[in-house]
Amino acid sequence: MYSWVVFVIFGLVCIWLTGTATNLPPAHASLPNRSITMHLPETQSVDPEIQQLVARQAKAWETADSNKVIADFADNCLFVVPGSKFKSKQEIKEAADSYFGNFTDIQVTIKRIIWKGSEGAIEWAWSEKDRETGKESQAEDAIIFELEGSQIKYWREYIDKESNQG
C-alpha cells in the first residue's frame, strides 16, 4: 500500500508543478499497463543548475561525504525522512554520519527531476548495503524540495522500500 501512496503523492506533485521535467523516460515506463491514466505536460530540460544540485546531492550520498551533503543546504533548513526531522545543517550532518556508519555501497540513480519557480520534485532509486549484515536493499524515493536562492531550505523524502522486495 505504501508504494501506491508514494506513486500518488509524486503524481500529484507532477500535476501541481506542471513545470519542466527532464527528458528521461518516466520511471513507470517499464511497468505493466494499469487502469490509472495520467497526462503530464510535455517534458523539457530542467535548469542545468538544478540538475547539478541534484547530481551533487546524489554523489555526496554515494561517496559518504556528509560535508558535501550539507553544502547545498541553507543554515535555516528542514530535512525530513520517514520518522525523523532535522532542523539544521549540523543535525543533517550528524544524521548522515550515523547513516554512513551503518551503510555502505550506496548507489543513487536519478530518474526524474521536476522544477518550477523555487520548488521541485525528484524521483530517484536508492540502493545500499548494511555494514553489519551485508544485506543489500533498494528503495524508490520521491523527494519534494524548495530552494531559497541557490540553497535547499526544505527537503522531504517519501521512501518506498516495499515495491522493490522480491
Rank of each mutant, 00 (worst) to 15 (best):
T18L: 10
I15D: 04
E94F: 01
D65C: 13
E49D: 14
N33V: 10
W124E: 02
F100H: 08
G83P: 01
L78A: 05
Q107I: 08
E62H: 04
S30I: 15
L12H: 08
N23S: 09
D65Y: 14
K111W: 07
I70K: 06
A60I: 00
Q52C: 01
A95N: 13
S30Y: 14
P25E: 01
A21S: 11
E119H: 11
E91C: 04
S30N: 10
T20H: 05
W124A: 01
K59I: 02
A71C: 11
A95S: 14
V108F: 15
L17T: 06
P26H: 13
I50N: 07
I114F: 07
Q57G: 07
R112Y: 05
I110G: 01
T20P: 03
V54S: 10
Q57M: 11
A60G: 07
W61L: 08
D75S: 11
E62W: 11
L24N: 09
W124N: 03
A125S: 13
E42M: 08
F73K: 03
L17N: 06
E119Y: 14
D105S: 13
V81I: 11
V80D: 06
E49K: 15
C77E: 03
S30G: 06
D65N: 15
D97G: 07
A64Q: 07
V81D: 02
D47G: 05
G120T: 01
P26V: 12
I122Q: 03
I106N: 12
K89V: 00
A64L: 15
A29H: 12
E123P: 00
T20R: 04
S84L: 08
K85Q: 12
R34F: 06
K87V: 04
I36C: 05
P25N: 09
T104G: 00
L31H: 12
L12M: 13
N33Y: 12
N23P: 00
P26I: 09
V108M: 13
F73P: 13
I106P: 14
L40M: 09
R56Y: 03
